[in-house]
């Protein structure tokens, strides 16, 4: 699984990455992190507000710094959906 953090590198993007890494650690997942800073690529996900959080190719949150607890929930849901 790949988690992408979309954003040009503003403080909010960094905070989101920290939260996402915490969430992954809590669940003990093996995940690759990719930072997407190129505007072309950010736009291709269809978001107008950074930072964006993307699991593989699915945008799960944008325009806010999602907290760790919420990311844990999002990850659980995403993994369950994938199994089905």
């Amino acid at each position: 699984m790949i988690i992408r953090i979309l954003g040009p590198g503003c403080p909010n993007c960094k905070k989101l990455e920290v939260n996402a890494r915490d969430a992954v650690k809590q669940l003990g997942l093996g995940v690759d992190f990719v930072k997407v800073t190129d505007f072309k690529e950010i736009a291709s996900y269809g978001i107008m507000r950074t930072p964006g959080l993307v699991f593989d190719e699915k945008v799960v949150s944008f325009g806010k710094v999602t907290d760790t607890t919420t990311i844990v929930e999002l990850l659980k849901t995403y993994i369950n959906e994938r199994r089905v």
Partner: peptide
Amino acid sequence: CSCSSIPLFIG
């Protein structure tokens, strides 16, 4: 937020 102006422009 100025860091969102470009994604917004594209959107």
